[in-house]
Design a protein around this nucleic acid. Structure first.
Lengths: 341, 341
DNA sequence: GCTGGCACTCGACGGCGGGGAGTGCCAGGG
DNA sequence: CCCTGGCACTCCCCGCCGTCGAGTGCCAGC
């Protein structure tokens, strides 16, 4: 177990290193933080912290920098989420409330997050799985061609063009549209398959094939689109990273282009609050020197399950309290905006 | 006027510099290209080319590199667009034809372009201005709340929630939907305002306000969404840029985040064929050391006006023939795909 | 007008040495 | 037992300098 003062030293090291981006030595520490002890004492504490793996020195006789384990301890025990200032919160609200549609909400959110945290922001579109159906529309493009439009309560719209096995009449299509809507509107996506299973039977034999096709495309859409889309922004902030660029920045950019990787990254945040994954805690190889701060949003209150996630990706050397505060605040306001529309 | 051989020397310089990324000297040139003259002669030609501003040397007694003006001459006079190989073309077609919806088409296109050119790819969503209306749908969310869904012939879907000044009945709404569609389906966006101008008059006074509101939102959507969306990808390729990173890459990333800048960039490509803007020909400050290769796509044939643009952003030192070939080919196939759906 | 030769320039590379920040350890004092 | 001041030591950083080589410009000759 670490003594109180040693924890204090670790906290000071993390704070200073985040601020200066340079390894921090014992002398500088005692000068900036009134720890009430001499550099020599701090040195002993540092040696102990190093033995326990919380800090490391890049080379002998340089200052110390926190390890992933050190950051972890800092985040878990030593830091509190820093709430945003009132003006900041107002700015967020103003900026987000100007959005005209879902794309715009997500776009604004991503820019906002990137700006607030000065890091790379990632926002997942509201998931379909937790959503409910607001409306299903069927449009006849040609005698044997139908467009399916699915509208969710989060304002998301999905459409598919369907080639039917046989022509279908306007009337039958209208019939199908009406029955489909009466069954699924307001229901959760997960419930839809069960609700429409027997729908084809009630149609005349001629149309049954087409109805079946339409239904299967609908179900497909529900499933497929569970692999979510997302939007990223603020990649220019990557250039504030380390100064040994190419090697640091490249794999990160590559990882960011792979939606799958990002989705898994966000998906791993299970807890209700803000989740932080530090350095090697990220599975993906290109992201071992970055941290991911993420949180779910859009459950309306804090009770329900989140509709989707958002977060930021930055160097392990980041301002965790501030970043966590910004992420949490943005998530909260986005949730509000979505609930209103 | 430059002699034939001097042009040949310029071409050789451009090719070698693009290949090696290093200033090219007279000796190396004569070795790799059988110009039939000695290094000394080439030196004289180089001096002349430098006087005319086509090439420059980074410092005295280094090799020469092409200037923007040199690249311009190369692109205009010395290079032909390099067609893709048959397997490449097949790969493009296969990859694109697997797309399920518009987002997917654009997403695949951007990845494809980035991969083919190994540069940053930018793809504009099909513009609404040139498009025609496929369907307008109105959904009643609440007595005085309507959702407008607009579907275009390119498969794009826009939706807006409208708060009405007064409640409107299901019947009136159905009536409005029917009349609206009968007037605008198949028409160009530009014609819509004229076509719906007098529509409100034929409704009972109670509904007129609501109808007017719906119409104005519709028109707004048409106009607003002319400010297009776009998708970018392949930013990791920026790391292949120069080796003096931070300064080069940063402004580019910043520029790429500003959709407005990108849209203007693409928009400036007026000609029917592939457009190349080199270095300082780009207005935007952050992009003065990059070139933009862009082209319109989606006109169906080569005759009509393009529906939108796509292109790549890369260092001025790029393989112009290859890049132009790839851009042109991708645009052509995307156009096909869109025409089919 | 092309060619070979020659002197010159200038950046890249590598070795060298001083300066400084930071460490580890130890002996002494509260 | 823990803290402190002192001290020797270790490396990194940085600027200096000489060498090396690619590349140039110029000139005389064919």
């Amino acid at each position: 177990m670490l003594s109180e003062r040693r924890l204090e030293v670790l906290r000071a090291i993390v704070q200073d290193y985040v601020g200066t981006e340079e390894p921090v030595g014992s002398k500088a520490l005692t000068e900036r933080h009134h720890l009430g002890v001499s550099p020599a004492t701090v040195r002993n504490d540092m040696a102990a912290l190093e033995d326990d793996g919380y800090i490391a020195q890049p080379h002998t006789s340089a200052g110390r920098i926190p390890t992933d384990k050190g950051y972890r301890l800092f985040v878990d025990k030593l830091a509190d989420v820093k709430p945003l200032s009132a003006p900041e919160r107002r700015a967020i609200q103003n900026f987000l409330s100007g959005a005209v549609d879902l794309d715009d909400v997500v776009g604004r959110t991503v820019r906002l997050l990137a700006q607030l945290t000065r890091q790379v922001a990632v926002v997942q579109y509201p998931s379909l799985t937790r959503s409910t159906v607001r409306h299903v529309e069927l449009l006849q493009l040609a005698p044997a061609r139908v467009m399916l439009v699915l509208i969710t309560d989060t304002g998301r719209v999905e459409q598919r063009v369907i080639d039917c096995p046989a022509p279908i009449s306007e009337d039958s299509l209208a019939d199908l549209r009406a029955r489909l809507n009466s069954r699924v509107v307001g229901r959760r996506f997960g419930d839809v398959p069960r609700l429409v299973a027997d729908l084809a039977e009630s149609f005349p034999a001629d149309d049954r094939g087409t109805v079946q096709t339409v239904l299967s495309v609908l179900l497909e859409t529900l499933v497929e689109e569970t692999e979510e889309r997302l939007m990223i922004g603020g990649t220019a902030n990557l250039t504030r990273f380390d100064h040994d660029f190419p090697l640091t920045i490249r794999p990160v950019l590559e990882a960011l282009e792979e939606q799958v990787v990002l989705l898994r990254l966000l998906g791993e945040a299970k807890e209700p609050g803000v989740t932080v994954r530090i350095g090697h805690e990220n599975d993906h190889e290109g992201l071992t020197s970055t941290s991911v701060v993420s949180v779910g949003y859009g459950s309306g209150g804090d009770t329900g399950e989140a509709v989707a996630k958002l977060g930021v990706v930055g160097p392990t050397r980041m301002d965790y309290p501030g970043t966590m505060g910004a992420v949490r605040a943005v998530a909260r306001y986005v949730g509000q905006i979505l609930a209103e529309s």
